[in-house]
Protein backbone atom coordinates (compact mmCIF):
# COMPACT_ATOMS: atom_id res chain seq x y z
CA UNK A 1 0.00 0.00 0.00
CA UNK A 2 1.54 3.29 -1.11
CA UNK A 3 1.56 6.47 0.94
CA UNK A 4 1.57 10.00 -0.42
CA UNK A 5 2.63 12.48 2.23
CA UNK A 6 1.65 16.12 1.83
CA UNK A 7 2.70 19.14 3.85
CA UNK A 8 -0.25 21.53 4.23
CA UNK A 9 2.16 24.43 4.94
CA UNK A 10 4.43 24.21 1.92
CA UNK A 11 2.54 21.95 -0.47
CA UNK A 12 5.58 19.68 -0.69
CA UNK A 13 4.72 16.02 -1.18
CA UNK A 14 6.66 12.76 -1.20
CA UNK A 15 6.09 9.17 -2.25
CA UNK A 16 6.46 6.18 0.02
CA UNK A 17 4.57 3.23 1.46
CA UNK A 18 2.50 2.83 4.61
CA UNK A 19 5.47 1.00 6.15
CA UNK A 20 7.05 4.50 6.39
CA UNK A 21 4.28 5.78 8.69
CA UNK A 22 6.42 5.52 11.83
CA UNK A 23 8.96 7.88 10.25
CA UNK A 24 6.27 10.50 9.67
CA UNK A 25 5.06 10.48 13.27
CA UNK A 26 6.87 11.74 16.35
CA UNK A 27 7.02 10.65 19.96
CA UNK A 28 4.06 12.32 21.66
CA UNK A 29 1.82 12.30 18.60
CA UNK A 30 -1.62 10.74 18.98
CA UNK A 31 -3.25 8.57 16.35
CA UNK A 32 -7.04 8.31 16.67
CA UNK A 33 -8.77 5.31 15.05
CA UNK A 34 -12.37 4.44 14.25
CA UNK A 35 -13.00 0.97 15.70
CA UNK A 36 -16.36 0.43 14.00
CA UNK A 37 -16.84 -2.97 12.40
CA UNK A 38 -18.62 -3.01 9.04
CA UNK A 39 -22.11 -4.46 8.89
CA UNK A 40 -23.49 -6.51 6.01
CA UNK A 41 -25.64 -3.45 5.28
CA UNK A 42 -27.09 -4.59 1.95
CA UNK A 43 -30.25 -6.63 2.55
CA UNK A 44 -32.48 -8.43 0.05
CA UNK A 45 -36.10 -7.63 0.82
CA UNK A 46 -39.63 -7.70 -0.51
CA UNK A 47 -42.13 -4.88 -0.51
CA UNK A 48 -45.77 -5.19 0.57
CA UNK A 49 -46.83 -6.78 -2.73
CA UNK A 50 -43.83 -9.09 -2.90
CA UNK A 51 -41.77 -6.73 -5.09
CA UNK A 52 -38.04 -7.44 -5.00
CA UNK A 53 -36.08 -4.56 -3.44
CA UNK A 54 -32.69 -3.99 -1.87
CA UNK A 55 -32.26 -2.13 1.39
CA UNK A 56 -28.99 -0.48 2.31
CA UNK A 57 -28.83 0.42 5.96
CA UNK A 58 -27.68 4.01 6.32
CA UNK A 59 -27.56 4.40 10.09
CA UNK A 60 -29.06 3.13 13.31
CA UNK A 61 -31.27 5.37 15.43
CA UNK A 62 -29.72 5.83 18.84
CA UNK A 63 -33.00 5.69 20.74
CA UNK A 64 -34.61 3.39 23.28
CA UNK A 65 -37.26 0.94 22.10
CA UNK A 66 -37.27 -1.54 19.22
CA UNK A 67 -34.18 -1.32 16.98
CA UNK A 68 -34.68 1.24 14.16
CA UNK A 69 -32.47 2.00 11.18
CA UNK A 70 -32.57 4.52 8.36
CA UNK A 71 -32.26 2.66 5.05
CA UNK A 72 -32.03 3.59 1.37
CA UNK A 73 -34.38 1.57 -0.85
CA UNK A 74 -33.22 0.33 -4.28
CA UNK A 75 -35.18 -1.36 -7.04
CA UNK A 76 -34.14 -4.80 -8.29
CA UNK A 77 -30.64 -5.24 -9.72
CA UNK A 78 -27.20 -6.55 -8.99
CA UNK A 79 -24.02 -5.06 -7.58
CA UNK A 80 -22.47 -4.83 -11.04
CA UNK A 81 -24.84 -1.99 -11.91
CA UNK A 82 -23.87 1.51 -10.80
CA UNK A 83 -26.30 2.73 -8.14
CA UNK A 84 -27.45 5.60 -10.39
CA UNK A 85 -28.45 3.09 -13.13
CA UNK A 86 -30.68 0.96 -10.90
CA UNK A 87 -34.47 1.07 -11.47
CA UNK A 88 -36.51 3.07 -8.98
CA UNK A 89 -38.01 1.09 -6.10
CA UNK A 90 -41.75 1.00 -5.39
CA UNK A 91 -43.04 3.74 -3.08
CA UNK A 92 -43.05 2.58 0.54
CA UNK A 93 -45.43 4.82 2.45
CA UNK A 94 -45.38 5.10 6.24
CA UNK A 95 -47.01 2.03 7.76
CA UNK A 96 -45.83 -0.33 5.01
CA UNK A 97 -44.38 -3.67 6.16
CA UNK A 98 -41.44 -5.18 4.34
CA UNK A 99 -39.81 -8.60 4.74
CA UNK A 100 -36.08 -9.14 4.75
CA UNK A 101 -34.64 -12.51 3.78
CA UNK A 102 -38.01 -14.19 4.23
CA UNK A 103 -38.22 -14.00 8.03
CA UNK A 104 -37.25 -10.56 9.34
CA UNK A 105 -40.04 -7.97 9.27
CA UNK A 106 -39.81 -4.21 9.52
CA UNK A 107 -42.29 -1.37 9.37
CA UNK A 108 -41.69 1.92 7.57
CA UNK A 109 -42.08 4.54 10.32
CA UNK A 110 -41.01 7.71 8.49
CA UNK A 111 -39.75 9.02 5.16
CA UNK A 112 -36.87 11.46 4.89
CA UNK A 113 -37.64 14.98 3.72
CA UNK A 114 -34.60 14.62 1.43
CA UNK A 115 -36.05 11.72 -0.56
CA UNK A 116 -38.83 9.16 -0.08
CA UNK A 117 -36.21 6.51 -0.86
CA UNK A 118 -34.64 7.11 2.57
CA UNK A 119 -36.95 5.44 5.08
CA UNK A 120 -36.90 4.83 8.81
CA UNK A 121 -37.47 1.13 9.53
CA UNK A 122 -38.52 -0.31 12.85
CA UNK A 123 -37.65 -3.99 13.11
CA UNK A 124 -40.09 -6.49 14.62
CA UNK A 125 -37.23 -8.25 16.41
CA UNK A 126 -35.35 -7.56 19.62
CA UNK A 127 -31.55 -7.25 19.55
CA UNK A 128 -30.92 -10.96 20.25
CA UNK A 129 -32.85 -11.95 17.12
CA UNK A 130 -32.11 -8.90 14.97
CA UNK A 131 -28.30 -9.03 14.86
CA UNK A 132 -28.04 -12.70 13.83
CA UNK A 133 -30.75 -12.06 11.19
CA UNK A 134 -28.88 -9.06 9.76
CA UNK A 135 -25.72 -11.16 9.49
CA UNK A 136 -27.65 -14.10 8.03
CA UNK A 137 -29.36 -12.11 5.28
CA UNK A 138 -27.08 -9.17 4.62
CA UNK A 139 -23.88 -8.83 2.72
CA UNK A 140 -21.44 -5.97 2.48
CA UNK A 141 -22.27 -3.00 0.30
CA UNK A 142 -20.50 -3.77 -2.98
CA UNK A 143 -18.54 -1.54 -5.33
CA UNK A 144 -19.12 -1.89 -9.07
CA UNK A 145 -15.46 -0.97 -9.81
CA UNK A 146 -14.19 -4.18 -8.17
CA UNK A 147 -13.68 -7.41 -10.08
CA UNK A 148 -15.11 -9.75 -7.42
CA UNK A 149 -17.85 -9.30 -4.82
CA UNK A 150 -16.59 -8.48 -1.34
CA UNK A 151 -17.01 -10.92 1.54
CA UNK A 152 -17.68 -9.66 5.03
CA UNK A 153 -14.07 -10.30 6.11
CA UNK A 154 -12.82 -8.11 3.24
CA UNK A 155 -14.44 -5.00 4.70
CA UNK A 156 -13.15 -5.08 8.28
CA UNK A 157 -10.28 -2.97 9.59
CA UNK A 158 -7.64 -4.81 11.68
CA UNK A 159 -9.07 -3.33 14.91
CA UNK A 160 -12.81 -3.46 14.30
CA UNK A 161 -15.12 -3.97 17.27
CA UNK A 162 -18.81 -2.95 17.38
CA UNK A 163 -20.70 -3.26 14.07
CA UNK A 164 -21.71 0.37 13.51
CA UNK A 165 -20.34 1.14 10.04
CA UNK A 166 -22.41 0.66 6.89
CA UNK A 167 -19.32 0.88 4.69
CA UNK A 168 -15.76 0.22 5.76
CA UNK A 169 -13.89 3.08 7.48
CA UNK A 170 -11.19 2.21 4.99
CA UNK A 171 -8.27 4.40 6.11
CA UNK A 172 -7.76 1.93 8.97
CA UNK A 173 -6.62 -0.72 6.50
CA UNK A 174 -3.14 0.83 6.63
CA UNK A 175 -2.77 0.11 10.33
CA UNK A 176 -2.17 -3.58 10.88
CA UNK A 177 -1.80 -4.74 14.48
CA UNK A 178 2.01 -5.18 14.24
CA UNK A 179 2.25 -1.65 12.78
CA UNK A 180 0.18 -0.27 15.67
CA UNK A 181 2.51 -2.02 18.12
CA UNK A 182 5.53 -0.56 16.31
CA UNK A 183 4.07 2.94 16.56
CA UNK A 184 3.40 2.47 20.26
CA UNK A 185 6.95 1.26 20.71
CA UNK A 186 8.15 4.56 19.20
CA UNK A 187 6.14 6.63 21.65
CA UNK A 188 3.14 7.37 19.45
CA UNK A 189 -0.08 7.09 21.47
CA UNK A 190 -3.20 5.39 20.17
CA UNK A 191 -6.80 6.25 20.95
CA UNK A 192 -10.10 5.23 19.39
CA UNK A 193 -13.69 6.18 18.94
CA UNK A 194 -16.62 4.58 17.18
CA UNK A 195 -18.18 6.37 14.22
CA UNK A 196 -20.97 4.86 12.16
CA UNK A 197 -19.60 5.49 8.68
CA UNK A 198 -22.60 5.66 6.36
CA UNK A 199 -23.22 5.00 2.68
CA UNK A 200 -20.92 6.56 0.09
CA UNK A 201 -23.45 6.48 -2.74
CA UNK A 202 -27.23 6.10 -2.96
CA UNK A 203 -28.08 6.50 -6.65
CA UNK A 204 -30.50 9.28 -5.66
CA UNK A 205 -29.35 12.77 -6.67
CA UNK A 206 -30.96 14.53 -3.71
CA UNK A 207 -29.50 12.05 -1.22
CA UNK A 208 -26.08 11.98 -2.86
CA UNK A 209 -25.93 15.77 -2.65
CA UNK A 210 -26.64 15.57 1.08
CA UNK A 211 -23.91 13.00 1.86
CA UNK A 212 -22.63 12.29 4.39
CA UNK A 213 -25.95 11.89 6.20
CA UNK A 214 -25.98 12.38 9.97
CA UNK A 215 -23.85 9.62 11.53
CA UNK A 216 -23.76 8.58 15.17
CA UNK A 217 -20.51 8.41 17.08
CA UNK A 218 -19.17 7.70 20.53
CA UNK A 219 -15.99 9.25 21.90
CA UNK A 220 -14.68 7.52 25.05
CA UNK A 221 -13.42 9.54 28.01
CA UNK A 222 -9.99 7.89 27.55
CA UNK A 223 -9.74 9.47 24.09
CA UNK A 224 -10.62 12.93 25.40
CA UNK A 225 -7.86 12.51 27.98
CA UNK A 226 -5.39 11.24 25.35
CA UNK A 227 -6.07 14.31 23.17
CA UNK A 228 -5.49 16.60 26.16
CA UNK A 229 -2.23 14.79 27.01
CA UNK A 230 -0.98 15.02 23.42
CA UNK A 231 -1.83 18.72 23.29
CA UNK A 232 -0.13 19.43 26.60
CA UNK A 233 3.03 17.64 25.41
CA UNK A 234 3.09 19.45 22.06
CA UNK A 235 2.10 16.33 20.11
CA UNK A 236 -0.14 16.32 17.07
CA UNK A 237 -3.55 14.69 16.84
CA UNK A 238 -3.70 12.63 13.64
CA UNK A 239 -7.09 11.26 12.58
CA UNK A 240 -7.15 7.92 10.77
CA UNK A 241 -9.94 8.48 8.29
CA UNK A 242 -12.42 11.24 7.62
CA UNK A 243 -14.92 9.56 9.95
CA UNK A 244 -12.58 10.26 12.87
CA UNK A 245 -12.31 13.91 11.82
CA UNK A 246 -16.08 14.14 11.70
CA UNK A 247 -16.55 12.51 15.11
CA UNK A 248 -13.85 14.52 16.91
CA UNK A 249 -14.84 17.86 15.41
CA UNK A 250 -18.54 17.17 16.06
CA UNK A 251 -17.75 16.28 19.67
CA UNK A 252 -15.87 19.58 20.03
CA UNK A 253 -18.43 21.86 18.41
CA UNK A 254 -18.85 24.03 21.49
CA UNK A 255 -15.08 24.57 21.63
CA UNK A 256 -14.19 21.75 24.02
CA UNK A 257 -13.86 18.06 23.17
CA UNK A 258 -16.41 16.08 25.14
CA UNK A 259 -16.80 12.34 25.69
CA UNK A 260 -20.06 10.59 24.93
CA UNK A 261 -22.43 9.78 22.12
CA UNK A 262 -23.70 12.16 19.51
CA UNK A 263 -24.92 12.58 15.98
CA UNK A 264 -22.42 14.10 13.54
CA UNK A 265 -24.19 16.60 11.32
CA UNK A 266 -21.15 18.75 10.55
CA UNK A 267 -20.26 19.33 6.93
CA UNK A 268 -16.51 19.81 6.82
CA UNK A 269 -15.03 21.68 3.87
CA UNK A 270 -12.46 24.32 3.00
CA UNK A 271 -14.21 26.89 5.18
CA UNK A 272 -13.93 24.73 8.30
CA UNK A 273 -11.18 25.28 10.87
CA UNK A 274 -10.49 22.01 12.74
CA UNK A 275 -10.35 22.47 16.51
CA UNK A 276 -9.03 19.05 17.49
CA UNK A 277 -7.42 17.33 14.51
CA UNK A 278 -3.99 18.45 13.23
CA UNK A 279 -3.36 15.84 10.57
CA UNK A 280 -5.17 13.19 8.59
CA UNK A 281 -4.40 9.75 7.19
CA UNK A 282 -6.97 8.94 4.52
CA UNK A 283 -7.55 7.47 1.09
CA UNK A 284 -7.11 9.23 -2.22
CA UNK A 285 -10.43 10.88 -2.97
CA UNK A 286 -11.65 12.40 -6.20
CA UNK A 287 -12.47 16.05 -6.62
CA UNK A 288 -16.20 16.61 -6.18
CA UNK A 289 -16.77 14.06 -3.40
CA UNK A 290 -17.59 15.07 0.18
CA UNK A 291 -14.34 13.36 1.20
CA UNK A 292 -12.34 15.63 -1.06
CA UNK A 293 -14.16 18.70 0.28
CA UNK A 294 -13.16 17.61 3.79
CA UNK A 295 -9.48 17.47 2.79
CA UNK A 296 -9.61 21.19 2.03
CA UNK A 297 -10.06 21.84 5.74
CA UNK A 298 -6.51 20.45 6.14
CA UNK A 299 -4.71 21.73 3.04
CA UNK A 300 -5.56 24.39 0.48
CA UNK A 301 -6.91 23.22 -2.89
CA UNK A 302 -3.84 24.82 -4.52
CA UNK A 303 -1.69 22.21 -2.72
CA UNK A 304 -4.14 19.28 -2.89
CA UNK A 305 -4.64 19.47 -6.63
CA UNK A 306 -0.99 19.10 -7.72
CA UNK A 307 -0.42 16.37 -5.12
CA UNK A 308 -3.43 14.37 -6.30
CA UNK A 309 -2.52 14.95 -9.94
CA UNK A 310 0.90 13.51 -9.17
CA UNK A 311 -0.76 10.52 -7.43
CA UNK A 312 -2.90 9.82 -10.49
CA UNK A 313 0.10 10.08 -12.83
CA UNK A 314 2.22 7.89 -10.57
CA UNK A 315 -0.44 5.16 -10.58
CA UNK A 316 -1.71 5.46 -7.02
CA UNK A 317 -5.01 3.62 -6.51
CA UNK A 318 -8.08 5.47 -5.32
CA UNK A 319 -11.33 4.41 -3.65
CA UNK A 320 -11.90 2.19 -0.59
CA UNK A 321 -9.23 -0.41 -1.42
CA UNK A 322 -6.61 1.97 -2.76
CA UNK A 323 -3.54 3.75 -1.45
CA UNK A 324 -3.17 6.27 1.37
CA UNK A 325 -2.66 10.01 1.77
CA UNK A 326 -1.15 11.60 4.86
CA UNK A 327 -1.68 15.32 5.33
CA UNK A 328 0.38 16.57 8.22
CA UNK A 329 2.99 19.10 9.11
Amino acid sequence: MRLLSLSPRTGAFSDGTVADLPQHLRRGDLLVLNDAATLPASLPARGPDGQEIELRLAGQEDAPGPPSFWAVVFGPGGWRERTEDRPAPPALPVGTWITIGGDLRAEVRALSSLSPRLVLLRFAAADDALWPALYRHGRPVQYSYLREPLALWDVQTPFHARPWAMEMPSAGRALTLPRLEELRGRGVSLAWLTHAAGLSSTGDAALDAALPLPERYEVPEATVEAVARARAAGGRVVAVGTTVVRALESAAQDGRLRAGRGLATLRIDGGFRPRVVDGLLTGLHEDGTSHFELLKAFAPAAFLEPALRHAAEAGYLGHEFGDALLIHE
Binding site: A37, L39, P40, D127, Y135, R136, L152, R162, P163
Partner: peptide
Protein backbone atom coordinates in the same frame (compact mmCIF):
# COMPACT_ATOMS: atom_id res chain seq x y z
CA UNK B 1 -17.34 -12.57 11.41
CA UNK B 2 -21.11 -12.76 12.11
CA UNK B 3 -20.43 -14.37 15.49
CA UNK B 4 -17.89 -11.71 16.49
CA UNK B 5 -20.07 -8.87 15.17
CA UNK B 6 -23.23 -10.11 16.86
CA UNK B 7 -21.36 -10.61 20.13
CA UNK B 8 -19.92 -7.07 20.00
CA UNK B 9 -23.34 -5.63 19.12
Amino acid sequence: VPLAGTAAA
